[in-house]
């Protein structure tokens, strides 16, 4: 039976290195700020403040930057890169003003 789904697969099922961290399918948030940062990006995209694809590209760039030479020892965690991407997109769309 295929269930109705509220989550956007474009977000929930991002492929590759930018894929959401999961453990047996469940999202992994280590700290509350990670959850809040996740919610801000998702909520802003839902409202059409930016396209998810734009955020995703910024996230891919931030993750690649953090991984540098060695993907196994990134310079920062996944949601720190997420925050970098969020700030980049907010600045690009001038959502925070000057």
């Amino acid at each position: 039976m295929i269930q109705e789904r509220l989550a956007d697969p474009a977000i929930a099922e991002m492929p590759g290195r930018e894929a959401l961290p999961r453990k047996s399918g469940e999202l992994v948030f280590h700290d509350e700020w990670e959850r809040r940062a996740f919610a801000m990006a998702v909520s802003l995209a839902e409202q059409g403040r930016f396209a998810w694809a734009d955020f995703q590209q910024a996230l891919i760039a931030a993750v690649a930057e953090a991984e540098g030479e060695d993907p196994l020892t990134p310079s920062r965690g996944y949601f720190e890169s997420w925050l970098v991407a969020l700030e980049a997109v907010l600045a690009d769309k001038r959502l925070l003003g000057e």
């Binding site: 039976m1 789904r5 399918g25």
Partner: peptide
Amino acid sequence: AVDIYENDLGPM
């Protein structure tokens, strides 16, 4: 938003 994604049943 958090609630939806944390409880997302995922695709079958």
